[in-house]
């Protein structure tokens, strides 16, 4: 869904890339080892979905976008340090 080359990106593609950027930005604020962990998970998840999901399957992409935004918000606000690996969902967070 994000494999367009040399052509203008669609709105939904921009949203996906913006979300990806948001995750990478947020990962910067974490501890180095957690950061690499988050980055590799997020990158793997985006890449997997970009291969698996048909680029015209807007409903699914929009669902994933919403889910991703929620997860990003959680990653931002709570001082959560890690993401769980299976489906990139936040584990129990240790609130201060």
């Amino acid at each position: 869904m994000v494999a367009s080359r040399g052509q203008k990106l669609s709105g939904i593609q921009k949203q996906v890339l913006s979300l990806y950027r948001g995750f990478l930005r947020t990962a910067r604020s974490k501890q180095p080892e957690n950061r690499t962990h988050i980055e590799s998970l997020v990158s793997a998840e985006f890449r997997r979905n970009s291969q698996m999901i048909d680029r015209k399957n807007f409903l699914h992409i929009e669902y994933l976008l919403r889910r991703g935004k929620k997860q990003l918000d959680q990653l931002k606000t709570v001082d959560s340090v890690r993401l769980s690996s299976s489906n990139v969902e936040l584990p129990d967070t240790n609130r201060p």
């Binding site: 994000v2 494999a3 367009s4 593609q13 890339l17 950027r21 990478l24 930005r25 990158s43 985006f46």
Partner: peptide, 11 residues
């Protein structure tokens, strides 16, 4: 590079 790579490069 795909568009995800480009985002990573810019970051």
């Amino acid at each position: 590079a795909d568009s995800l790579d480009t985002v990573e490069i810019v970051m």
